[in-house]
Amino acid sequence: MDYLIHILILIGIYVMLSSSLNLVAGYTGMLSIAHAAFYGVGAYTVALMSLNLHTPFLVNLVCAIIICGIFGAVVGIPSLRIKDDYFIIAAFAFQIIAFSVMNNWVSFTKGPMGLPGIPQPNLFGWKISSYPDFLLLTVIMCVVCLLICWRITHSPYGRVLQAIREDETFALSLGKNVAGYKISVFVLGAMLTALPGALYTTYISYIDPSSFTVDESIFIISIMIIGGAGRLWGPVLGAVVLVMLPELLRFVGMPNSIAANMRQIFYGGALVVCMLWRPQGLVGKADVLRK
């Protein structure tokens, strides 16, 4: 039972990560390779605050959201003002460098040894410690995250985002401040990653930089694409499929060392295959990625 709940919590974390990426990439059309880095910034903020300052969970979460937003602005503002596509490079560089700082700033983050013993959250007197507790917290966070995404995408703001994805010039001619929209949605996406970051940190109670690599970013992208970009339920479906898959491999009896690589080969391959033959993913809109 605990095993099943563990899987469900992981699915929840990836639902939040890929849904927030979906706002940026699926709806607005800007592919960010830095999502795992923002996730890591959120996770480390919560971990370091609760270990060093002993502040309550909610305070840590709010600070994580703000700090993720600030980093989002630092990456987004210089690169999204420019017409040329420097954004993807700035995001990529941020991903590599955030990992490098987490890994090398030993005096603060303990580097590759990671941070153990992160205290469990306490929400208004509710001590979250057992598996079912965490599942409930996950469900609450997922609902909040999906509600935010739903509200954004079903608003005039979301309509402009889709217009930007389809035709930037047209959006400009309609008087929409394209750069402003891109920056704001990117910052928003970065802020949302603080939710899964805080959840993951307190749930596992240990973090190290290896959870926030480029590969993790690509995994989040794969979930979004394979599930279906530009649709609210696409990332949810993608998260269920891609998180369950390695567990299935384990049932088949594949040794863990090989299973980790096989899993990545599978989703990398699925990404290539999707691009070649089914860009809309499992439930995506047919033409989000087509010309």
Binding site: I218, I265, G268, A270, L271, V272, L276
Partner: peptide, 8 residues
Amino acid sequence: LASLGLYT
């Protein structure tokens, strides 16, 4: 996206 898949 295809390039990211190839890399992985």
